[in-house]
Design a protein around this nucleic acid. Structure first.
Length: 806
DNA sequence: CACTCCCGCCAGGAA
DNA sequence: TTCCTGGCGGGAGTG
């Protein structure tokens, strides 16, 4: 509770008064180029000007509805879950029509007072605190046993336990713990059950819904949502629910009423208690009882129920930092693990989204990346098949081959070189205004004269002139579609991976900056030159990167360049081997995030997710051990997790998983047991490495103005070229362009701290190679920015201009 | 101010 | 026609 309160953040409500960013500079914004200013105007809704308030309101309502739906689904999800015996939730909706019985149960943690509902139990014994164990024979001789005393069933009023479906109900943060608005299970819940006509049996009970790591059963408040929940499990058509089931029989208006009544110990009341729905289900009403009209398949997406849970919760009550994509990915992964654990590889996005308390839209971001990695495949609407990441090494191997064939490594190098030139220090006499980045590039002719079709299509995407013929619009549509595909997260992810892995064979410490990656991803330097990529796609790269980071497949490491820090991405996934196998669960378990999370909420959230994951694995192991108890010879437990000091993935050492610390974000714990493919970890940052730049063979393609360079060529002050590799000043100049064969060949700056490419002083035509001897050395501090390709900085300037323009 | 990236609008298309 | 999917950009949050 305290923590939840702490997490509450008041979302700033700055609206309207903000200046609007209008990207109208055709010289910079590829999408804007050649467009009229109207095309570049942001939506009115975003501006808030001249906007029909009704439209605006409608949008807001829609957004609100979406949020409500999410919350509603969450409630549904609470009811959907199953006992851990594998009664996997949500299978076929159609089956709900035939289900015979539904059990609502809470398994008791201490096991003293009742049986778990595992399996097809016929009865539940309740805690002795339960004064009444009322058995009502149903029409077919079945027994209905009802409720018990919940001794630990503290539930969130919202039913928004993000972990409701999780075996590990850690529930430690973001109010997802059911502790924010606790509903104490008062027990003493009595009710008269009406036998259903089908001989269905309803069991009500309650579990020790302790957020216990290993005991979490179904313990959420739930709306009955037949679309989600009314599905028999695979063990005989039972759904066991140990949730506070919300039942809306009379529509939203009654919710509060029911709510209020149910706060009391509910005596068996036909009004608020169980009712047989048309399918013969009985629904228990207990704890926080809300009722839902059992009127059919589409339970009214509850606005009202959500209403009261949302009203005090700006930003859904959770700080933004606890909703990061990386964190979401971790949660998602845990959910998937549960599915796998239950032997089901069909992932229902709706279910997952509900249980994670996020909009489905957010899930797509993760799913798309997973798809790109081959981990998931869409089966049908809202359902994906989990294929796993065990084949990741071979998947990446294939990607790497593709990358090689596409010459991506050369593109990377070339982009680095080209971008380097944006760091030119203008001569004193030179008007800085004339030295725009684009003009410096070898592809400038391209840039100016011929916008690529890509850009055209980009532009067309924003162009709503609509005056073209149908034929024209058809092709435009096609082009839009093509462009959309190129911008898809899946595509970007794969391409991003190609960029990140393609150089591993050449540079052991291969790393790529965001600027380089975004430039290559967003444009083909060969065609488009190295114009600044647009912001939007950079955002996508951030999205992809965050997911990959949370999966521990890449790392983002900060490198200093002068006074600036620039992030570089480093691959740290499994070794890329053809037909290699990879225990991804293992990988994600023992490779903790190495990034330092500054935000405490985010850090806490990550910790909780780590703990959840760990608890899941422990649970899994426990069960495994039980099964193999006879053979089990325990390893010495002295081996413990340790703080990673060297390359953490050098070897896989047996460690006692049970004692693995899961709270250290920066900790990397060697894995237990061998894994087929070790993970690649970046080198420790502080180790000075020899510059290891391969003898770069010029790529087979050359943009206009770009000529291959010879690493052995150096440029003398006279401008003549010489073959010499021994000189510290290794400058290559060909065709009016300067290339450096070896970036910072003799620089005292460690290579890993150096920016990509070389720093070039046009005034002196020297490369900075020495801090002590080179008269013309340009200290990094004197370089305006680590990369002029920093998108937002460029666009930020544009932004100002745009704002100035109106 | 720059960087990061969440949020939600809305186009496109599948169901 | 509905609604799922996901591209996209605004702007919030943070250092």
């Amino acid at each position: 509770m305290q923590f939840s309160n702490r997490l509450r953040m008041v979302k700033s409500s700055v609206q309207g008064a903000k200046s609007v960013s209008v990207y109208q500079d055709p010289g910079y914004c590829p999408r804007s180029r050649g467009l009229s200013t109207d095309e570049n105007l942001p939506l009115l809704s975003t501006i808030g000007w001249n906007l029909n308030p009704h439209v605006h309101d409608a949008r807001k309502r829609k957004a609100l509805k979406v949020r409500n739906v999410v919350a509603e689904r969450q409630r549904s999800m609470d009811v959907v879950k199953i006992e851990r015996n594998g009664n996997l939730l949500s299978k076929r909706i159609a089956e709900r029509e035939n289900r015979c019985r539904v059990e609502f149960g809470w398994t008791l943690k201490d096991g003293t007072s009742g049986k778990n509902l595992d399996g097809n139990k016929d009865e539940i014994k309740w805690n002795k605190n339960f004064p009444i164990d009322q058995r009502v024979p149903n029409g077919n001789g079945g027994e209905i046993k009802q409720d018990g005393k919940a001794h630990k069933g503290e539930r969130n009023e919202e039913g928004s336990n993000g972990n409701v479906n999780s075996l590990i109900g850690r529930n430690g943060y973001e109010g997802s713990d059911g502790n924010e608005c606790k509903v104490k299970w008062k027990g003493n819940v009595r009710r008269g059950l009406e036998p259903d006509g089908n001989g269905g049996e309803t069991m009500t009970g309650q579990s020790d819904a302790d957020a216990g790591v290993s005991e979490t059963k179904w313990n959420g408040n739930g709306f009955r949502d037949q679309d989600n929940i009314d599905e028999p499990d695979r063990n005989g058509g039972e759904i066991k629910r140990n949730a506070n089931v919300i039942k809306d029989r009379s529509g939203s208006e009654e919710l509060d009423e029911n709510d209020a009544k149910c706060d009391r110990n509910v005596p068996g009341s036909s009004d608020h208690g169980e009712k047989v729905d048309k399918n013969g289900d009985e629904i228990e009403c207990s704890g926080k009882n809300l009722s839902e009209k059992p009127d059919g398949n589409k339970a009214q997406q509850n606005k009202d129920a959500t209403k009261h849970q949302k009203r005090d919760e700006p930003n859904n009550g959770f700080p933004r930092k606890t909703k990061t994509l990386g964190l979401l990915c971790r949660k998602f992964f845990l959910k998937v693990l549960e599915y796998i654990f239950f032997g089901d590889n069909k992932i229902n996005l709706e279910t997952i989204a509900s249980s994670m308390e996020v909009e489905k839209r957010r899930i797509y971001d993760v799913v798309n990346v997973m798809e790109a990695l081959g981990a998931m495949k869409k089966s049908h609407k809202s359902f994906y098949t989990w294929k796993g990441l065990d084949n990741l090494p071979s998947t990446l191997h294939a990607l790497k081959i593709e990358a090689d064939e596409e010459g991506i490594y050369e593109k990377v190098l070339m982009t680095q070189h080209i971008m380097t030139r944006f760091m030119e220090v203008p001569t004193r006499n030179e008007d800085a205004n004339n030295a725009s980045p684009n003009e410096a590039g070898p592809s400038q002719i391209h840039d100016d004269s011929s916008l690529s079709t890509t850009e055209e299509s980009n532009s067309s995407g924003n162009n709503d002139s609509g005056s073209g013929s149908s034929k024209k619009s058809g092709s435009k549509k096609k082009e839009n579609k093509r462009q959309r595909g190129l911008n898809s997260l899946t595509y970007l992810c794969r391409y991003f991976f190609k960029i990140l892995i393609v150089g591993l064979d050449y540079q052991p410490d291969y790393k790529v900056s965001l600027d380089v990656a975004s430039t290559i991803l967003i444009k083909d330097p060969e065609i488009d030159g190295c114009k600044p990529p647009d912001r939007s796609r950079c955002r996508r790269i951030y999205d992809v990167a965050n997911v990959l980071i949370s999966l521990r497949l890449i790392e983002r490491r900060m490198f200093t360049f002068g006074t600036k820090k620039i992030p570089l991405f480093v691959y740290c996934g499994p070794k890329i081997i053809e037909n290699g196998q990879f225990d991804f669960f293992h990988h994600i378990r023992f490779n903790k995030l190495s990034v330092k999370l500054k935000n405490s909420e985010e850090k806490r959230a990550y910790e909780v997710e780590e703990e959840n994951l760990e608890a899941f694995f422990r649970k899994q192991e426990e069960e495994k051990n039980k099964a193999e108890s006879s053979n089990d010879v325990g390893e010495p437990t002295e081996k413990r997790s340790r703080i990673e000091e060297t390359d953490p993935i050098q070897e896989s050492v047996d460690f006692d998983k049970e004692n693995v610390s899961t709270t250290l974000i920066n900790q990397i714990i060697p894995s237990q047991g061998p894994i087929p493919v070790p993970a690649i970890r970046p080198q420790p940052q502080l180790i000075v490495q020899e510059p290891r730049f391969p003898q770069f063979v010029p790529p087979p393609f050359y943009p206009q103005g770009f000529l291959p360079f010879d690493p052995r060529m150096i440029l003398l002050n006279s401008g003549n070229l010489l073959h010499n590799v021994n000189s510290p000043r290794t400058l290559i100049q060909q065709n009016n362009f300067n290339y450096l064969s070896v970036p910072y060949p003799l620089s005292s700056i460690p290579f890993f701290q150096q920016p990509y490419g070389a720093t070039f002083d046009t005034a002196s035509a020297y490369y900075a190679t020495s801090t002590s001897t080179g008269n013309s050395f340009i200290h990094p501090e004197n370089i305006p920015r680590p990369s002029a390709f920093n998108i937002d900085s460029i666009l930020g300037a544009r932004k100002i201009r745009g704002s100035n323009q109106g």
